[in-house]
Design a protein around this nucleic acid. Structure first.
Length: 110
DNA sequence: AATGTGACATACC
DNA sequence: TGGTATGCCACAT
């Protein structure tokens, strides 16, 4: 598949347990900040490439679980996050800024 | 090649 | 607060 998806998957897989990231941040980290939508799109197909991709750790810039509808269950995403130690309240990540994992820092170092 | 789409982001009303 | 509109760009058809 195209590098874009692969890069997205790699970044998402790099997200540490108990941490979260945003589509825009990932897109920016890949160099295509304007393709934030594609990041979510990639997540949709993520299971086809690597089912183990923790798509639940990726939320929008607001910390909202906007993509929960694409999971097996609307609550699956929240449940997974809670299990990993991420407190989710009202479909949004609590202390999002605090738990936010910046992929740019991890990718920049290479 | 052209058109449609979208798990975003931002702006506007 | 919340819906609507536009930009954006890579993928799908």
């Amino acid at each position: 598949m195209n590098d874009f998806y692969l890069q997205v998957f790699e970044v998402v897989k790099l997200i540490p347990k108990g941490r979260v990231s945003s589509y825009g941040a990932i897109a920016k980290a890949l160099g295509t900040a304007k393709s934030s939508r594609m990041v979510g799109y990639a997540m949709n197909l993520s299971h086809k490439h690597d089912p183990k991709i923790p798509a639940h750790r990726v939320v929008n810039r607001n910390g909202l679980l906007t993509g929960k509808h694409h999971f097996a269950s609307a609550t699956q995403m929240q449940e997974l996050l809670n299990k990993e130690g991420v407190q989710v309240i009202d479909d949004k990540v609590c202390n999002f800024e605090h738990l936010f994992w910046d992929p740019i820092k991890e990718i920049k170092v290479e």
